[in-house]
Design a protein around this nucleic acid. Structure first.
Length: 299
DNA sequence: TCACGTCAAGCAGAT
DNA sequence: ATCTGCTTGACGTGA
């Protein structure tokens, strides 16, 4: 099991997701920003290694405007050595990597232009991971998309569009249950038709579900991840008690986390902690697991 | 130097 | 109709 957190590190001075306004785009600006972001990513990965954090989600902002037509700068060639160097560090230290394109990526949209932009964005994510030399255990997680008042047709559109993708992209794509449209059962149903691995989001599941038991979920999700996909990935978070339903917690809720681990301890999986204080939660979670190894012994 | 309006992009649900 | 939440921050103008 590996513990990770997404995109940002608040302990370090550097920011690995620096960007700029579209109207201030220039080749010089994008070059400098990417260099900054890659340097910082390397720092974050070293920080993580020093703290036994072996799972990390790379920010989609690492190459700003990568899939936008304005971006004509050949970053793939210009930074290929830099990306390869980071990739070697990742591989040599057995670090697990994921990426999560943001909410605008909807491959089952009713609008052709939205689908087209989404595919371009996914291709960009795939390029980053390829240029780092990572294998197909490095994943790109997306949601199924919109429902548009007709779930079965919307699922069919997802499947049709998925089938048209290049196999190198299919090797990395996984789907994740969301908090209002597609629950774990929906995702498993899609897996049964196109064999796409299902990433389990525990917090989303608590907000939107078919009352599936946690054991049944782990059992069925695990089977969707083949040898080439690596261990099942799981996103973990809890409700922020001060904010509206669906808001992620500011800090790790120790008792909620321990309850979750107790229920799921017999399965092999990697956990991404989607909690606002980022590496802080990851370090706490690792400490909790180490302080009570029994929590984590397979039964 | 700092506040704060705004930032490429979609969707659903609440108000 | 407008706002919020999603990996939510961070940019950058104007004072």
């Amino acid at each position: 099991m590996k513990i990770g957190y997404p995109c940002l590190n608040h302990s370090l001075e550097c920011k690995g997701n620096r960007t700029f306004r579209l109207h201030s785009y220039s080749e010089d600006k994008i070059k400098q920003t990417i260099k900054n972001n890659l340097d910082c990513l390397f720092c974050i990965l070293k920080f993580n290694l020093n703290n036994d954090i072996l799972f990390f989600r790379i920010s989609s902002d690492i190459i700003p405007f990568a899939s936008h037509p304005i971006c004509t700068f050949p970053w793939q060639n210009y930074f290929s050595n830099h990306l390869k160097e980071i990739g070697r560090f990742i591989i040599n230290n057995d670090i697990r990597i994921s990426m999560h394109p943001d909410q605008f990526i909807v491959i089952n949209s009713l609008r052709e232009d939205v689908i087209k932009r989404s595919l371009t964005e996914i291709i960009y994510h795939n390029e980053i991971l390829d240029l780092m030399g990572l294998d197909s255990t490095a994943k790109i997680q997306i949601h199924v998309g919109g429902v548009y008042g007709d779930k079965s047709n919307s699922i069919k559109r997802f499947i049709d569009n998925y089938k048209s993708l290049d196999s190198s992209i299919k090797n990395r794509l996984v789907i994740e249950n969301d908090d209002k449209s597609y629950c774990i059962d929906d995702c498993i149903g899609i897996f049964q038709r196109i064999n796409i691995p299902v990433l389990f989001d525990y917090f989303h599941h608590s907000l939107y579900n078919n009352h599936e038991s946690l054991h049944k979920i782990f059992e069925s999700c695990r089977k969707t991840w083949k040898e080439k996909d690596g261990f099942l990935m799981v996103d973990y978070s809890s409700q922020n008690p001060m904010k509206p339903r669906g808001s992620h917690a500011d800090k790790l809720d120790h008792s909620n986390f321990i309850d979750f681990i107790k229920l799921s301890k017999s399965y092999d999986f990697d956990i991404m902690l989607e909690i606002k204080n980022k590496e802080q939660s990851a370090m706490e979670a690792i400490k909790l697991l180490n302080s009570d190894k029994r929590l984590f012994t397979k039964s």
